[in-house]
């Protein structure tokens, strides 16, 4: 994948991700009236082993999964830090203390805003369709039967940090192999 992409396409993809995460951060910033700091997006191909390692950080993160279908098919995974959850809850007018149900509601709402806006911005700029399903919470220890089917995936990672709280989030977009080809075709068109 790294070779398939090449320097020029990687630059385009990174810029498209940059714009999408800018839109996603703005959505959240408006809602909580707090500034969000953005990282430079990170685009890598990963092996199933590396993919599995993401979920070793279950002591630090909540996870959500959202699949999307259309001319782009794949899955968005959001990692939301456990630290700062209470701050986010109060910024978003959730009653404290959080119980299990309200915690799940909060992380799914956050995942939907960030991952949703990220994917939407990305697909729009590429003029490709990607219809996103509702997010579901993913618990690596319990949800063993809900396996991931990524043999290899193009993984686009963006990182959000909420200023004045310990909260941070990562959004991973995983694409199916076929979608990677459609993606590359579109990127080439954009470069012409």
């Amino acid at each position: 994948m790294r070779d398939k992409l090449g320097e020029e396409l990687r630059d385009v993809l990174q810029e498209l991700m940059n714009i999408s995460m800018g839109q996603a951060a703005n959505e959240l910033a408006k809602l909580i009236e707090t500034k969000i700091t953005l990282s430079i997006p990170h685009i890598v191909t990963i092996t199933p082993e590396e993919f599995a390692e993401i979920f070793d950080s279950a002591d630090r993160y909540w996870f959500s999964r959202q699949s999307f279908l259309g001319s782009l098919r794949g899955e968005v995974i959001a990692l939301l830090s456990k630290s700062g959850t209470d701050t986010m809850a109060s910024l978003m007018d959730y009653p404290l203390p959080l119980d299990d149900a309200t915690t799940e509601e909060l992380i799914l709402e956050l995942a939907n805003i960030l991952a949703g806006a990220c994917l939407k911005g990305f697909a729009e700029q590429l003029e490709l369709k990607a219809n996103l399903s509702m997010p579901t919470a993913y618990r690596p220890a319990q949800d063993k039967e809900r396996q991931f089917r990524w043999d290899s995936a193009l993984l686009m990672e963006v990182e959000f940090k909420v200023e004045q709280s310990m909260f941070g989030s990562k959004v991973l977009i995983c694409l199916e192999d076929q979608s990677v080809d459609s993606l590359i075709n579109r990127l080439n068109t954009l470069l012409e």
Partner: peptide, 8 residues
């Protein structure tokens, strides 16, 4: 010309 479009 920016991708960060937050009010701040």
């Amino acid at each position: 010309i920016s991708a960060d479009i937050q009010p701040e």
